[in-house]
Amino acid sequence: MGFEKFGRKSFTGMTKTGKFVDFLSEGKVEGTVCKKCGARYFPPRADCAACFSSDMDWFEMPKKGSLETFTIAYYAPYGFEKDCPYSMGVVDFGNNLKLFARLSSDLKPEDIKVGMDVSVRPVQYDDGQLSFEIVKV
C-alpha cells in the first residue's frame, strides 16, 4: 500500500516493500537485508532468494558510489514527455550493491561523466510523488 506514490508515475499499487516510500519521506534510501543469511538487496525485496527466508530488515544505502553509466533521454515514453530531457544512470557502491535512478535535474549533460563520484538522495516532486535521485559529490 502507498506504493503508487513512488516515482514520477507508479505502475505498482501494492507491495510488501511499500515501507520504502515511508523511508523516502523520512529522507532515507533503504534496501533490504536478510536477517537469516545476510544477503543484501537493492532494489528492496520482501523475500530472500538465497535462503527462502521472508524475515527481512532494512538498511540505509551507502552515501558514496561511482557512476557506472548513464543516458540522457531526449524522447520519453507516454506520460513522461513533460520531463524531457532527463538523465538516468547506474551507481556502483561496490560489494555487489548498485542502484538505478534518474540523475538530479540540476546536473548539466556536460557535467555527467562515467566514473564520477556520486551520491543518492530522496526527492519529492511538485505533485507529491516521492523518488530518489543521483547527485554529484
Binding site: 506504493f3 508515475k9 532494489p43 513522461f80 534518474r102
Partner: peptide, 9 residues
C-alpha cells in the same frame, strides 16, 4: 515496480 517509474524505455 522499480524502473518504469523513472520513465525508462
Amino acid at each position: 515496480q522499480w524502473e518504469a517509474p523513472f520513465g525508462t524505455m
